[in-house]
Design a protein around this nucleic acid. Structure first.
Lengths: 187, 187
DNA sequence: ATATTCGTTGAAAAAATATTCAATAAACTG
DNA sequence: CAGTTTATTGAATATTTTTTCAACGAATAT
């Protein structure tokens, strides 16, 4: 039974290639032929593994949604510490586990208008903003975060992270920021 | 000579319609037929006014690049005051001059990978980040802004603003944030 | 060793979208 | 008013991109 393993491996290769291209060039600008050529394989064969381009995106987004569950806050850990550690981890993935990093970037991109509805819905379901809103409230009540509408603060926080990650994804020389520097947005 | 004025007006109408659709649905997801239908006019006629969809985008981006020049810092004004006033103005445009606001959002979007090269280049030329880098350095030397790599801080700053503006553009109920709250990212 | 299934290809078909165009109506000019 | 230019339409065409498919080779099973 080596066939099945090989098939899985090929599937993964396609997914990872597509992920990288989607993040670096954008979903609409990466054509099926680009993905196939980069894997590499014939365009026809790609449809042996995925029903459509949108299906490919869906698989990625589902994986991303799955993976994000492990980013839930740990009860008892102070919010500023948790966020700081979380970001440190995230940024270190940029070089150590590029696909995890790219996945995060992709999830953020898919939430934007103009992306295929189905995928977008799933990505919106993984709402990091809600998670941080709670954390921000906690931090505010403890006096470690400054006052202000938690929803706006959370939006700013994630937008800043997304912006930095997209910069990092495209411009490989961009210096990895100190997590503290981002958590400081909330302080 | 009423013809010429009317033509200009029609042109503007197309431009403004396209701008709104591009921002709300994204460039690739708004079809030429969508724009024409929204103006409203026949799809064929649209090509009487603009050579192509990309040309339409180019015109918008050129307008945006032109308009952004008026956002240069005023010598002598303290950086934190300038930025705060600037953001106040910008956010107030969201309701008072939606097209100015949308233009800002569009410029940010066009800078991203996957957008048509030609337009992207122009948008990247209008680099608000460079402008703020100087302002941040000034603020740091005066001690009103906190320490940290000015490029990263500037990237964060604009990414946060872009994120909030995109939210405002799509979700009309989103509460306009206090500019102080954003400038606080730098303090 | 033969049959059967699966992987693979590249060219052809289909689908989505942008663009052109011939025809007509409306506005202007002298 | 007759003639000329401009605006307008929507169906036809061109282009771009995705998707299918018939054919063939390689691996696996019997």
């Amino acid at each position: 039974m080596k066939r099945k393993e090989q098939k899985e491996e090929r599937r993964r290769a396609i997914l990872m290639t597509a992920l990288q291209l989607f993040v670096e060039r954008g979903y609409y600008d990466t054509k099926i032929t680009d993905i196939a050529a980069a894997v590499p394989m014939s365009t026809g064969l790609l449809f042996h593994y995925f029903e459509s381009k949108e299906d490919l995106l869906m698989e990625l987004v589902k994986m991303g949604a799955e993976g994000t569950k492990s980013a839930d806050p740990i009860p008892g850990v102070p919010p500023e510490i948790f966020l700081s550690k979380f970001l440190g981890q995230l940024f270190s993935y940029a070089t150590e586990q590029p696909w995890v990093f790219n996945m995060f970037v992709l999830m953020g991109q898919v939430r934007r208008p103009g992306m295929p509805e189905e995928a977008r819905k799933i990505a919106e379901g993984v709402n990091a903003i809600d998670m941080t809103v709670a954390l921000i409230k906690e931090g505010q009540s403890k006096g470690v975060f400054r006052e202000g509408d938690p929803v706006i603060m959370s939006t700013m926080f994630w937008a800043a992270i997304q912006g930095i990650m997209e910069e990092m994804a495209v411009n490989k020389e961009f210096k990895m920021p100190d997590p503290e520097c981002i958590v400081a947005i909330l302080k």
